[in-house]
Design a protein around this nucleic acid. Structure first.
Length: 233
DNA sequence: AGTCCGATTCGCT
DNA sequence: GCGAATCGGACTA
């Protein structure tokens, strides 16, 4: 019994400040394959493997909330130390969850997770409010979007904005190494989603990253995937 | 105090 | 593929 516990512990190393203290783009790629762990009020544990991320740089990045140095109460977490949660509300009803990077004003948006555990609980959070459709959501569709993953893992601004994911005293949400990660994963680099108003130049920059052939991706880019194949063969 | 809009999702066509 | 839902907060005056 004791053996099993220590085994689990060594397999699931919690990520620390030094692990996340990386430049934004580097952090976005580093986070792929890592496990996001959420502990609910009732001690239920939810886990999902990070499979899609986006970098939002500071300063010159027209797609970023911190474009041209904009700094407000709402985007303050983008300027906080690496590993800080930046949760904001969008469209008046959804949340997006970011992790701040080493550079002030730059953060990584989590766009998709592959559900690992607590899937029944995620289903409950995702239950539709409309009565007409009540069929179960496919597991791969539970967290295949930035706001869907927030709903599934009960991530809200009120809950978790500004928490330090690397603080060992924080038991609400943190990151872990994935003991089961496939070492052969290939990363697709492509354009970001939903920032058309930032203009083409900043939309087409390859600042979105996802794990090739994963079923929980929000939006595949077949052209970029073929390019990747070409590069490798 | 008023306006404008979004790093989205969902249901329907 | 399209339009509606829905509201906090930045920005303008």
């Amino acid at each position: 019994m004791i053996t099993k516990m220590s085994l689990e512990k060594s397999n699931c190393r919690r990520l620390l400040k030094e692990d996340l203290d990386k430049p934004c783009k580097e952090l976005a790629m580093y986070l792929l394959g890592k496990i996001l762990v959420r502990k609910l009020e009732d001690d239920k544990i939810l886990k999902g493997r990070i499979v899609e991320t986006e970098s939002y740089l500071g300063g010159e990045d027209k797609g970023s909330h911190s474009y041209s140095g904009r700094r407000t109460q709402a985007n303050e977490p983008m300027y906080m130390p690496a590993g800080t949660a930046y949760v904001y509300m969008t469209y008046g009803m959804y949340h997006c969850f970011n992790i701040s990077s080493k550079e002030p004003g730059a953060a990584v948006l989590l766009r998709a997770l592959e559900p690992i555990s607590g899937i029944e609980t995620m289903q409950k959070f995702r239950v539709r409010k409309v009565k007409s459709i009540q069929n179960e959501i496919k597991t791969t569709k539970l967290c295949d979007g930035p706001s869907k993953l927030c709903i599934s893992m009960n991530i809200t601004k009120q809950n978790l904005n500004k928490i330090d994911l690397t603080d060992l005293k924080n038991d609400k949400m943190w990151l872990e190494d994935d003991p089961d990660i496939d070492k052969e994963i290939r990363i697709v680099h492509t354009s970001r989603i939903g920032i058309a108003s930032a203009g083409v130049e900043w939309t087409i920059k390859p600042l979105r990253f996802y794990i090739l052939n994963n079923d929980s991706i929000s939006k595949r880019d077949k052209a970029a995937e073929e390019e990747l194949d070409f590069d490798i063969h």
